[in-house]
Every structure is written in structure tokens, then in C-alpha cells.
């Protein structure tokens, strides 16, 4: 009875675990980036393969403990030390499946990381600091002004140390919200002022550390207009959990107009836009 009970429990737990995935009540938020479809497909494929493996292994485990219990003295187990054939078969089969998955799992990665950002990308410099995001927009001239850590002065709201004497800096804008154009590649130049942070918008299916001392360039294309939550996904200190901001994905015209604004109007406009767009409706 112990064996049967255990078998049944294992099967129930397996069913429960698998169905938690398949009811899809809790699932990825709907994706908004151009690479996400391929990534979601790869995820689905992987989760199906490992789901089948998981289920098969647990059903098998349940089966053997259901079937092969001790039946008292005199009745002995099968005397075998194994089978070379089986060892070879399952080694080869799993190797093929695993390496296959690994190779397939590279394609989205390669598309994001092995190519430079396209020439027409919209560039934003990101400077993270403990518990706050700063996005540095180049303004109308498309050239970012010089920055210098020695000029950083939080009380003067110069969070990134922008050198106001640099002519290129005149039209630059720094804001805690990232606004990007829809359907056009975006290149982020990621920096950190202090410790490691991580740029994470679940809908983008994209994540990258911001490492102090490094300029990390990454690119993606957001293809759905809207307002999304931006989170920090690398432990950066006590208020890591509330290092929050928003990403606005705007229609080209609206975005262009926004980028033409000077700092104070930009700020006001962002506030309007944040009110104008709603967060996606999450399942409840």
C-alpha cells in the first residue's frame, strides 16, 4: 500500500505541476518586441520537451514503485547489472535532444547580440544609480553631451553629470522614464553610477545588466504602443524592490515631437503621456 500510495502521490503532484503550466492562468505577459515571438516559441518548445520528459520520468517512477514491491521471502528481484545497449541508447538520445535544444536556443540570442544595432536605431544612454533610472536623450541634434562623474550633483538634479558647457548638451534631456519609438530599433548604451543594476521589462523578453565601468550596448525593437513597467532585476541594495520606472512605446510622430522638446516641457509631456497610456491589462 505504501508503494501504491507513493505512486499515486507522485502522479498527482506531476499532474498538478504540469497543469499549473498548462492552465496558463499565470503566464508571460503579452510580448511587445520583435524578437519575442521566436523566443516564446523556443520557450514553448522547450517547456513541452522538458514537460514530456518530466511527466514520463515521474510516470515511470510511479509505475515501477507501484509494480515492483516486495512480495515476501523467496520472491527475488531480477538479477541484472544493467545493459550496455540501453546505456548507449539513452545517452545518445538525451545528448541529441539536449544539444539540439541548446543549438536552437541560440538563434534569438544571436540576433540580439551578434549584430550591431541597425544604423537607423534610436539611441538612448541609460545611467542607473541606486534606486533610480536616468535616461539620457540626445535631443534634436542627435548627439549626446559630455558627461563626467565629477559633475554629478543629485541636489541639482544632475544625476548623470551632464556637462552643461558642452554645446552638444544644450538640447539634451535626462528623465527617469524611457520613451522609445514603436517599430524602430532602439539601441541602449547601458552604464551604472554605482553598483550593478539590470534593465528588465517583462514584455520585452529582454534583460541586461548595467555594470559600472562598462558601456554595454544592446538593441531591440518594440512593436506595440503602450506603457510598460520597468524593473531592476539585479540586487543593488536595500531599495532594489522599488527601483521602478516606466517604458513608453510611442507612435513615431508622437515620439519625434517629444524628442524635440527641451527639458522642462519634456518633463511635462512625459507626465501627460504616462496618464494617456494605460498599463496592459493583466489577467486577474
Amino acid at each position: 500500500p505504501m508503494g501504491r500510495a507513493l505512486a499515486v502521490i507522485i502522479w498527482i503532484l506531476t499532474l498538478g505541476s504540469v497543469s499549473l503550466f498548462f492552465v496558463k492562468k499565470w503566464w508571460f505577459p503579452e510580448a511587445i518586441s520583435s524578437h519575442a515571438a521566436a523566443l516564446d516559441r523556443q520557450f514553448l518548445l522547450t517547456i513541452i520537451v522538458v514537460g514530456i520528459a518530466f511527466t514520463a520520468a515521474q510516470i515511470g517512477l510511479g509505475y515501477v514503485i507501484w509494480k515492483f514491491r516486495d512480495r515476501g521471502p523467496g520472491d527475488r528481484a531480477v538479477y541484472t547489472h544493467g545493459s550496455n545497449r540501453l546505456e548507449v541508447i539513452w545517452t545518445v538520445v538525451t545528448a541529441v535532444i539536449f544539444i539540439g535544444l541548446a543549438v536552437m536556443g541560440q538563434s534569438v540570442w544571436a540576433s540580439l547580440h551578434f549584430n550591431k544595432a541597425p544604423a537607423d536605431s534610436f539611441q538612448v544612454e541609460v545611467v542607473a544609480q541606486q534606486f533610480q533610472w536616468n535616461f539620457h536623450y540626445a535631443g534634436k541634434d542627435g548627439i549626446s553631451g559630455r558627461t563626467d562623474p565629477n559633475l554629478i550633483d543629485d541636489s541639482a538634479l544632475n544625476f548623470i553629470g551632464l556637462d552643461q558647457t558642452d554645446p552638444n548638451a544644450k538640447d539634451d534631456v535626462v528623465h527617469s522614464v524611457i520613451a522609445v519609438p514603436v517599430g524602430r530599433p532602439v539601441e541602449l548604451i547601458l552604464r551604472s553610477r554605482d553598483v550593478i543594476h539590470n534593465f528588465w521589462v517583462p514584455q520585452l523578453r529582454f534583460k541586461q545588466d548595467l555594470v559600472p565601468g562598462m558601456n554595454i550596448r544592446v538593441h531591440f525593437t518594440a512593436n506595440r504602443v503602450g506603457k510598460y513597467e520597468l524593473a531592476c532585476a539585479e540586487l543593488c541594495g536595500q531599495f532594489h524592490y522599488r527601483m521602478k520606472s516606466f517604458m513608453l512605446v510611442l507612435p513615431a510622430a508622437e515620439h519625434q515631437a517629444l524628442m524635440a522638446l527641451p527639458q522642462d516641457q519634456f518633463q511635462a509631456r512625459i507626465t501627460e503621456l504616462l496618464a494617456k497610456y494605460e498599463l496592459p491589462v493583466y489577467q486577474q
Binding site: 523566443l39 523556443q42 539536449f98 541548446a102 541560440q106 540570442w109
Partner: peptide
């Protein structure tokens, strides 16, 4: 071990580790 190990196969793929 099976339950925990197989998700390693998800995390181990560069692309899937992004999300």
C-alpha cells in the same frame, strides 16, 4: 531531482535566460 533538473535545461539556453 528530475523536477528541478529539467528547468536547468530552460535556464541553460542563452535566449531563454533573457526573460
Amino acid at each position: 531531482f528530475v523536477a528541478g533538473g529539467i528547468t536547468g535545461l530552460v535556464l541553460g539556453q542563452t535566449s531563454l535566460d533573457l526573460p
